[in-house]
Design a protein around this nucleic acid. Structure first.
Length: 316
DNA sequence: AAGACGAAAGTGGTTGA
DNA sequence: TCAACAACTTTCGTCTT
């Protein structure tokens, strides 16, 4: 006894609460450009953006043929995600199993397809490099955008034949290190080294090589970028962090930071801020998280206090 | 006893001849 | 290629809290 409604014109979309009846039963009628409450019938807005395509399609094939975009192009995939593949399943487009004859043909095609794809050494190199890059990046927690930068740097290095005679892993590690600096992600070279099979020396050589031969804008590791990481490791309070940020900023303006280990500067700034804000940490604790020794913290601390004229009010 | 301080000697990396 | 050099580390004795 249920009477079916006519052809559905609405795309049901739960939106904000209706100002008429308080229900949250809105529906968007893109064909008319209206928002209609399905509970009380209130038309709430007569100007909504239609985010769908401007064409209409009635069948799946029509939709496929009219679609003008595909998956995004990515540098971190060896072929930029643009090549085609022959599926490994022995099924045709309708999902039916192939006959023995066709299966043999497909097998041959597949073989040559794969061979032609990795035929050039350039491509093979990229394939290996990108999988190593993915492995290392996820181990180090490198975000997506930075990985694209890594891929870009590696491609440039490869194009300039810098990978010749060097291990792929070391160049990948170097690219990751540089991409981290570009994206202002604080990662020390040693952190990267521990996750690779190559040694530190090779990686730092590769870093210097890429830096000199490939045109990439790589900012110097800045003390400021390190503050969030270290202060969260130390569990410092917001006001202490702000104070430390201010100290680092002043130190930078006073030009006493050049050539110094950022870890030491931030460590000292956090130490001072801790004393000033009575959110104190010991030099040892700070030295541990900032990967410099207590002596370095002390030296920076003395310099900062002297040149910035910091006076500890709670001293007397 | 833990933390801070500072001197002295040693290390790995950069710079300039 | 080598020496000079600055920054940083390790080690250790001493002072302070």
């Amino acid at each position: 006894m249920v009477k079916l409604a006519g052809p559905r014109r609405f795309r049901i979309n739960v939106r904000e609460v209706c100002i008429g009846c308080g229900e949250s039963l809105f529906t968007n009628d893109y064909t008319r450009g209206e928002n209609i409450c399905t509970s009380c019938g209130l038309v709430s807005s007569d100007r909504i953006a239609n985010r769908g395509p401007e064409w209409r399609a009635f069948t799946a094939e029509e939709r496929d043929s009219r679609e003008r975009t595909g998956a995004p192009m990515k540098l971190s995939i060896a072929d930029k995600g643009l090549s085609t593949m022959i599926d490994w399943r022995n099924k045709d487009a309708n999902g039916r199993a192939l006959t023995t004859n066709t299966r043999a043909t497909i097998y041959r095609m597949r073989k040559w397809h794969i061979r032609s794809r990795v035929q050039s050494s350039h491509h093979r190199n990229l394939g290996i490099a990108m999988s190593e890059m993915e492995r290392l990046s996820s181990q180090l927690g490198i975000p997506r955008e930075a990985r694209e930068t890594v891929a870009l740097i590696y491609r440039k290095a490869l194009a300039k034949r810098l990978v010749r005679g060097r291990s792929i892993d070391s160049v990948v590690a170097a690219a990751i290190y540089l991409a981290c600096r570009i994206h202002r992600i604080p990662r020390r070279l040693d952190e990267i080294v521990t996750e690779t099979r190559t040694n530190r020396k090779q990686i730092s050589q590769a870093v210097r090589l890429v830096l000199s031969k490939v045109d990439v804008e790589v900012p110097l590791a800045s003390a400021k970028d390190l503050i969030p990481r270290l202060s969260s490791d130390l569990g410092l309070e917001g006001r202490t962090v702000r104070r430390a940020t201010e100290i680092v900023k002043q130190a930078k303006e006073g030009r006493i930071t050049v050539g110094k280990d950022p870890g030491g500067i931030v460590g000292a700034a956090l130490y001072i801020a801790g004393i000033l804000e009575e959110d104190r940490r010991t030099q040892r604790e700070i030295a541990k998280v900032s990967h410099v020794t207590e002596v370095t913290i002390r030296n920076r601390y003395k310099e900062l206090v002297r040149s910035l004229g910091i006076i500890f009010e709670n001293d007397f």
